[in-house]
Design a protein around this nucleic acid. Structure first.
Lengths: 221, 221
DNA sequence: GAGTACGAAATCGTATACGAAGTAATATGG
DNA sequence: CCATATTACTTCGTATACGATTTCGTACTC
């Protein structure tokens, strides 16, 4: 473990529990309870929660306390839209740095995803999906953009574990879009084209969700 | 003032001092000193600083303390590039909601900027520039994206007050690009076109800076 | 004279304690 | 029986205190 700082430790622990679904959206984060649970004082816990607030993982209200944010479909929509933008940019910026070996790895992951569609394993599918995109991001030379992408993923993770958003036909399309994206990168396509493709990939998932849930529409392009 | 929470008060105060340049980049933020200065205890100050860290305005190191981040040209570059992306998106998403009255206000501001070029008033020019873009952003329906834009502006503000980055010819071009952008919006151009224009507007400023400073190039498109 | 070891000062990190604000339960009057 | 006021409880907000870590200055040795 060797975190050193207890504040850091609290931050990591609470974040992990939000992302893995132990604390689902709406869960009330009581300082004293978490402090006792982690064997530390309330001060580091409080600090950790304020940091998580800045990342958008929890909502904090004065004299009321913190709750795990999420649930709200509108919030999901905002997050997905933002992610489509920063993810698209991150992918485009990474593209020139992606070599054949990375492409091969990504393609292997994508084939595993295709496999998952046979046995209907949405959990593994989701994990592989993250792996796939991680391969395409990780080389992004701009750490700020990469950070924004990670924050978006964390937000989605906290939502996913509670209300599992899964749109039937979408998974198949997704795998095909991945392959198309890989070919673009392989072919050395321009940054603009790659960005557009990556952005539409996520926007399509959002659109599918909106169509299914009949939620209020929003211009996702 | 009626801030209510002292933590909030400390947050606002320190943030303001960073943005207005009282605490310039590299400034060492000593908890006890700030606490005494604000007439509060160190705990709220500490919390405030951790929040500012999450926004990227300060850098925090364990057992060492916080310093106002900035200065580094690389950081400037990352911030501008990120801003070009989120700003472009925010402008495009706002565009359909911008009415003739907003256009008129923005145009008036832009003409004031043109005026500033005559008497060479870079400080006012910068302020008006922020006003101009604010008019185009404020209506962005996605609060997350809007928040990212604001964070970027804050980062730039902290840089600007110390090392004033001003590229000679750039200001004139900038005003012209503003006018072009307004015409696009007026004409009801597509979101894609508006986004590209807004993005290039900022990217051009970055490119001008890079060309002047002979810093290592980066693919800004 | 340069480098290292030691010690003192400064600063951060966390715990504990108490006061403030909000919430829920209960009692009381209509 | 319902509405409202009061009380008790929960939880947050901040101050103070002390231990841990780093940094800087000084003395000592080679």
């Amino acid at each position: 473990m060797a975190t050193g700082s207890k504040s850091e430790q609290a931050y990591a622990a609470v974040k992990a529990r939000i992302v893995d679904g132990t604390y689902s959206p709406g869960y009330r984060l009581v300082l004293a309870a978490i402090a006792k649970d982690l064997g530390v004082s309330v001060v580091p816990v409080r600090e950790a929660i304020r940091r998580l607030e800045a990342e958008g993982l929890v909502t904090f209200e004065r004299n009321i306390g913190a709750t795990v944010s999420g649930i709200d479909p509108t919030e999901y929509l905002y997050t997905m839209q933002t992610l489509s933008i920063v993810e698209g940019a991150a992918t485009a910026l990474s593209a020139p740095l992606i070599g054949p070996a990375d492409i091969a790895r990504a393609r292997a992951v994508n084939e595993d995803m295709r496999e998952c569609l046979q046995h209907f394993d949405p959990v593994r599918f989701t994990a592989l999906n993250q792996d796939f995109h991680s391969i395409l991001f990780e080389q992004c030379p701009n750490p700020h953009i990469l950070d924004l992408v990670h924050r978006g993923w964390n937000r989605l993770a906290s939502l996913r574990s509670s209300t599992f958003r899964f749109v039937p036909g979408r998974a198949h399309e997704s795998v095909d879009e991945h392959e198309a994206l890989l070919r673009l990168i392989e072919a050395g396509a321009g940054a603009e084209e790659i960005e557009k493709s990556a952005r539409r990939h996520r926007a399509a998932t959002l659109d599918a969700y909106l169509a299914q849930s009949n939620a209020g529409s929003l211009n996702t392009r």
